[in-house]
């Protein structure tokens, strides 16, 4: 059973004016429990609008979103419950920190769910272990932290609600390589710890190759492709047509192939590349 189903979702901005504009039009897809789904697309292709529907921040102009086979808008008063089950981490989430201490900022989400103080304490500590925030930081002001630390605290703020599905809008934007790897590890760890489903928007094809099971490609508000990572990245020309690309290592192997070297082109990560090169080397030795 799919945990989340999006059916014929359409969203128009400026609905009743001459400037009517479909930001997302007739998009349907389903996400399985425990899966990592990557969403890629050119700037302005409707990715952010799409994910804001998933937890009911935007109401679809047309179509449905089903969470565990139930329309999330079935009971509009209960939409805040949906938001704690489907967490959404916005772009640059560190800009939404506001509390006096790291602890109370992380506890803001769970507190809104009406949890007891003991439970809050437990959840904050547990999530801090996953995101790597040291216990002595909990009483510090979030504004005294470094950029990467702020980002981790902000992500922890959403994770502390223990959402079953967690959606990230460009979680690694503006971070250095180490910070980026760190965030990727946090996402993987959270998923493992809570058997959660993850949806990620990213412009980094390399991140997608490392993380995602499936990819959803958006173009001008339409769903262009929805397939496994291998199948999407093997259509490099189509991706380039809509302003995207394949990971850099894949481009290297495409070039090698074009130069007449007999390589497998389905190489998306550095690990894949190393394995493929080893295979070729072993083959050469035999020949």
């Amino acid at each position: 059973m799919s945990i989340l189903q999006v059916k014929n979702l359409t969203h128009s901005y400026n609905g009743n004016t001459p400037f009517v504009n479909d930001a997302v039009s007739n998009v349907s897809f389903a996400v399985e429990k425990g899966e990592i789904l990557g969403i890629i697309g050119h700037t302005g292709s409707g990715k952010s609008t799409l994910v804001q529907h998933l937890n009911g921040l935007l109401k679809p102009t047309d179509g449905q979103i089903l969470f565990e086979n139930e329309d999330i808008w079935k009971n509009p008063k209960e939409i805040r419950k949906i938001r704690s089950k489907i967490g959404l981490v916005f772009q640059y989430p560190e800009y939404q920190l506001f509390e006096e201490t790291v602890f109370s900022d992380i506890a803001f989400g769970p507190k809104n769910m009406g949890l007891s103080d003991d439970e809050l304490d437990k959840r904050v500590k547990e999530i801090c272990e996953i995101v790597g925030v040291k216990p002595e930081y909990l009483q510090k002001s979030p504004f005294d932290l470094s950029g990467g630390e702020k980002r981790r605290v902000a992500i922890a703020g959403v994770m502390a609600m223990r959402p079953e599905i967690i959606v990230f809008d460009e979680p690694t934007a503006g971070l250095d390589p180490k910070g980026r790897d760190n965030i990727i590890k946090i996402i993987k760890d959270y998923r493992k710890a809570f058997n959660a489903t993850v949806i990620i928007i990213s412009h980094s094809m390399e991140d997608m190759a490392l993380l995602a099971d499936k990819l959803l490609v958006m173009n001008k508000g339409n769903l262009e492709m929805f397939d496994t990572v291998d199948n999407v990245f093997s259509q490099g020309d189509k991706l380039r047509e809509i302003g995207l690309n394949v990971p850099i290592v894949t481009r290297v192997f495409n070039k090698l192939k074009a130069l007449g070297v007999d390589v497998n082109e389905n190489v998306f990560t550095v690990t894949d590349a190393v394995n493929e090169l080893k295979r070729i080397k072993a083959g050469d030795g035999n020949a």
Partner: peptide, 13 residues
């Protein structure tokens, strides 16, 4: 608007 959405996503009422 962005911040409001972000806090709403954290269950702010």
């Amino acid at each position: 608007e962005k911040i409001m959405n972000a806090q709403k996503a954290r269950g702010a009422d």
